[in-house]
Structures are given as structure tokens and as C-alpha cells.
Simulated scan of single mutants.
Amino acid sequence: MITLERQSILNSEISTADSPGEIFAAMKRVAHEFGFRHVTLFAAGSPDENLVSRMIVETTLPSAYIQEFDRRRLLRLCPVAPIISKSVLPYCWSLDESENVRGFAIPAAMEELQRRYKLITSVAMALNSIDGDRFLLRFDGTRPRLTQVELNEIGMIVLHAFDVFDKIRRSAKTVGAGPLSSRELEVVRWTAQGKTSAEIGRILSLSDHTVNAYMTNAIKKLDCVNRTQLVAKALRLRLIM
């Protein structure tokens, strides 16, 4: 069980963070201190979203797991999101529990994939921004189910972390309103529709090299690591529709 001293250290680390990356680094430490292997921050997608990769803001989950999850279109089968969205408290469950204890059934394909990647016990918590954006933080690993005391502690730490994260995010959103040029926005919009660089080049009468240059600039401006995260962030910031 996490000690009050460690909880104080974690909260101090969170309080001094001045970027989303530092907040997530603190969340990785929280995951470790509570015995979890992975932590993921999701941004709520549209009701018809079917790819979890588009919802991920940051994660330590293996890319191969995410790719297979999306390839098999398992997001639409996920039974957890509706439960978590109805509560402000952290929710804990384990694949090793019976359906009656968990409170929901887990599709066989999803259970097989999670067991293969050792995502046995999970904790998730819905988080709502002041400006109305919705997020979800989730921890996964192989440890036993959390005690109620641990669940209360991790819930308080997550709320504190999200409060700091949201202030940083909203501040950056205000300062950086409209950070992309019109050409960069065009490239991002077409990327969001599934177009390749070559296809976008033909549409906009640009070379592949120029399209990729616009894409690279947009990725840097929005502090992203790849096209998938760029599109997800642009949608979340309402830079594209």
C-alpha cells in the first residue's frame, strides 16, 4: 500500500510540473508506486469513434497492443466506458474476477488480447475539464485488485494531477489559439479523412515533400509525436471539424 510520505512526494512532483509531458511522467511514477505496468490518458472521442488510437493523448501501452485492438475493432465492444462515465470515482476491476464481482461481462476477444499483454487488473477514472472536454485516465497491470484505501488514494492523486494538467492545457490552448497556418490546417484536415501525403499532394497541387514539411511543422507546433496524435489533438482543440 502506498504510504502518506510517498503520496506527498508524488503530489509535490505533480504540483511543480509545468508541461503535459511532466504531468504524464509523474503519472508513470504513480503507476509504478501502485504496482501497475501501464498508464494511459484518453480524450473522449465522438460517439461513433471506433479506433482507440485516435483517443490516446499519452500512453505506455505497447504499440502492437493498440494496433491489434484497433484492427479487431474492439472499442465498440468495450463494456467499461459507459460505467465509468456515470461516476466521478475511480473504478477498479480484474479479468480474474467473476462477472458478478466486476459488474460487467468482457468480450472473449478483448479478454484474450488483454491477458496476452498482461493487462489483468485495471483502474480507470473519468475526468472533466472546466471547458467541457472529457478525459479518462487508466492504469493497467498484473497486481491484485486495489484495496478501498488504495483506490481512494489513487483517486485523490489523479484529481490533483488532472487539475494541474488542465490548467496547463487550457493556458496553452488560449495562448496558442490558431497556431497552425491555413496550409497546415488543410493538410491536417485531409489527413484526418484518411488521405496519404501523395493523395493530399494531388488534391492541393503540392509535392509529397511539401505536404510532409507542413505535417512536420504542425506536429511540432502542437507538441505531438506522430500524425495520429496530431489529428486527435487538432480535433480536441477544435482546430479542425
Rank of each mutant, 00 (worst) to 15 (best):
V30N: 02
V30W: 01
A31F: 01
H32Q: 11
F34H: 04
F36G: 04
H38W: 06
V39P: 00
T40S: 09
T40E: 07
T40F: 05
L41F: 01
F42I: 08
A43I: 02
A44Q: 15
G45D: 03
G45V: 04
E49W: 14
E49Q: 11
E49C: 04
L51Q: 14
L51R: 14
S53A: 09
I56H: 11
V57I: 10
V57R: 12
E58F: 10
L61R: 03
P62K: 06
S63R: 08
A64W: 00
Y65P: 03
I66L: 09
Q67E: 13
F69I: 02
F69A: 04
D70W: 10
D70L: 06
D70G: 01
R73C: 07
R73M: 15
R73W: 15
L75N: 05
L77N: 13
L77F: 13
P79N: 04
P79A: 04
P82G: 11
I83N: 10
I84E: 14
S85C: 13
S85M: 14
K86S: 15
K86I: 15
S87W: 10
S87Q: 15
S87F: 12
L89E: 14
L89V: 14
Y91A: 12
W93N: 10
L95M: 12
L95W: 09
L95A: 08
D96G: 12
E97Q: 13
E99K: 15
E99A: 14
V101S: 14
R102E: 08
R102N: 07
F104A: 00
F104R: 03
F104I: 01
P107W: 11
A108Q: 13
A108Y: 11
A109V: 05
A109F: 03
A109M: 08
E111C: 02
E112N: 01
L113I: 00
L113K: 03
L113P: 04
L113G: 01
Q114E: 14
Q114P: 01
R115A: 07
Y117E: 03
I120S: 00
T121S: 05
T121F: 06
T121I: 08
T121K: 09
M125Q: 11
L127N: 06
I130V: 12
I130L: 11
F135N: 02
L136Q: 11
L137W: 04
R138I: 02
F139P: 02
D140P: 03
D140F: 07
G141C: 04
G141W: 03
T142W: 00
L146S: 01
L146C: 05
T147W: 09
T147S: 14
Q148E: 10
Q148W: 03
V149D: 02
L151P: 06
L151A: 07
N152Q: 09
N152A: 08
N152F: 09
N152V: 12
